[in-house]
Design a binder for these strands. Structure first.
Length: 347
DNA sequence: AAAGTCCCGCGATCGGGTTA
DNA sequence: TAACCCGATCGCGGGACTTT
């Protein structure tokens, strides 16, 4: 037979309520009694029955962390930081959605079933109307059930008003700064290998890019912008294929921006295969400043997002350890990191 | 003030009983 | 015989209240 709270209570010669108070710490218990209870816990090797506890409290000690793919450093760094910040009091469950909105909804339902204490949803939101609505509704349900939802790198607008905290990334600002940097170096024809078209992150980064172009009168018409932009997944292969496509469309390119660092490395690989020098013939920039970016050859110019700090903040918000930011949302600033992969174009 | 008692509630499940 | 309804059960948290 499993040891229950009642067994501990009998052994410590106290009531079950007292044992519960000692273990939860939600109620003051005299030191001597407390010690006796803890001794009994130790002697019986008692551990709280999680499901029963969740049954009684209508919440569990489970925290869901939704990521596209833990193997992708962008998400791995965040998942790791969330788990570190949670410490040993909560059980982090990392769910790989593969970027699929259906799977995201499925995982949110499973977490709802478990009465998770909190859910941290990382990464961009899909903007297709039906998924956006379904996802927002699911977040609303979680909130109504007492689960604290935190959006990490996803706009607050992806959840119903007041149902979640949002730690947003300065994607627009970062995209703008990156392109400003290229323009200031003298680049005028800048290609862009963007992420999937229906993602908020993709849109925001692209909007920043275009804002910078517009500010310098380089925006051109929509057709021109479209010609210099290709879409694909946030992957190395997408960068590789995208760069070849862009070179084909516009041989006069002097710079190419990748939607993230992995894409940028793919772009670099394609350019090198074409015999082009980086940054001599063409400049390349990425986004995120993942650990490998500084060690790439040449070192990658990118936009740094403090993922670790942002994820730690999200975890604290999830646990109620940090006060709600103004309006329930916090903007993580993006910082330009200029390295060797960008330079002035040849005259 | 500290500790105890009592009891409700949480929600899925299952056995037993009733009805169609 | 299927379809249903009812009540008990699991282990715990916590509120209200009483006793020491």
């Amino acid at each position: 037979m499993a040891v229950t709270l009642a067994d501990v209570a009998a052994r410590a010669r106290v009531s079950a309520a007292t044992v519960s108070r000692v273990l939860s710490g939600n109620y003051p218990v005299a030191e001597a009694t407390r010690a006796r209870v803890l001794a009994a816990v130790d002697e019986l090797d008692y551990v709280i029955n999680g499901p029963a506890s969740a049954l009684a409290a209508a919440t569990s000690d489970l925290v869901g962390v939704l990521v596209n793919d833990v193997a992708d450093p962008f998400f791995g760094i965040m998942a790791s930081a969330v788990q570190s910040e949670l410490g040993s009091e909560k059980l982090a469950v990392v769910c790989n959605t593969g970027g699929s909105p259906e799977r995201e909804l499925t995982y949110l339902t499973l977490l709802l079933r478990q009465r998770a204490a909190a859910v941290v949803i990382t990464g961009s939101a899909v903007e297709t109307p039906e998924y956006a609505a379904a996802s927002a509704a699911k977040v609303g349900r979680l909130a109504a059930n007492g689960t604290q939802v935190v959006l990490l790198g996803r706009p607050a607008s992806a959840a119903p008003e007041g149902s979640a905290f949002a730690v947003e990334f300065g994607n627009r600002e970062g995209g703008r700064r990156l392109t400003e940097h290229l323009i200031s170096l003298g680049h005028r024809r800048i290609g862009y290998v963007a992420g999937p078209a229906d993602r908020t992150t993709t849109r925001h980064r692209l909007e920043g890019h275009r804002a910078a172009l517009d500010a310098h009168g380089l925006g051109g018409d929509a057709g021109e912008l479209g010609r210099l932009t290709v879409h694909g997944p946030y992957s190395r292969k997408s960068g590789y294929d995208g760069a070849l496509e862009l070179l084909d469309r516009e041989p006069g390119l002097t710079a190419v921006v990748g939607s993230n660092d992995a894409v940028a490395l793919g772009i670099c690989a394609a350019l090198r295969e074409k015999g082009l020098d980086i940054p001599g013939d063409i400049s390349v920039a990425g986004f995120d400043d993942l650990p490998f970016s500084a060690d790439a050859t040449p070192a990658l110019t990118t936009v740094r997002l403090p993922l670790q700090e942002a994820a730690a903040r999200a975890a604290r918000l999830a646990l109620g350890r940090e006060e709600s930011p103004a309006g329930g949302r916090y903007m993580v600033p993006a910082e330009l990191v200029a390295r060797a992969s960008t330079a002035a174009p040849r005259a």
